[in-house]
């Protein structure tokens, strides 16, 4: 299944500068693994060693934050769009 994945500026070093790449999989976990297979190093920027999505990276499937749809287990269908956006956050 072809899924469009929008890549934020800070991660485009892994995608030869491309703003958007295609990945395949029927869950977000499979998409992340497929991204890693083609863009080595990107997975570590998205997922903790424990296997959870990183707290300060937001991932959306069809405009819904995956924190509310099952995280990496979120299911995908052909034509869905995944958007990755780093959180804009900080603190003193």
């Amino acid at each position: 299944m072809a899924i469009e994945v929008r890549i934020p500026t800070i991660l485009r070093t892994y995608t030869d500068g491309q703003k958007s790449v295609e990945a395949s999989g029927s869950t977000l976990q499979q998409i992340v693994d497929d991204l890693e297979a083609n863009h080595s190093g990107i997975k570590e920027r998205l997922v903790e060693d424990s296997g959870e999505l990183r707290r300060f990276v937001n991932v959306y499937v069809n405009d819904e934050d995956v924190r509310f749809t099952g995280g990496l287990e979120t299911e995908l269908s052909d034509g869905d769009q995944v958007v990755i956006l780093p959180a804009v956050a900080g603190g003193c």
Binding site: R67, A87, V88, A89, G91, C92
Partner: peptide, 22 residues
């Protein structure tokens, strides 16, 4: 942007508004 953390020591853009903005 709204500080979703509403805090004197932390700020974070709300994730839905962040997507809309981008």
């Amino acid at each position: 942007m709204v500080n979703a953390a509403g805090s004197p020591t932390f700020y974070e853009f709300d994730s839905t508004e962040l997507l809309r903005l981008y």
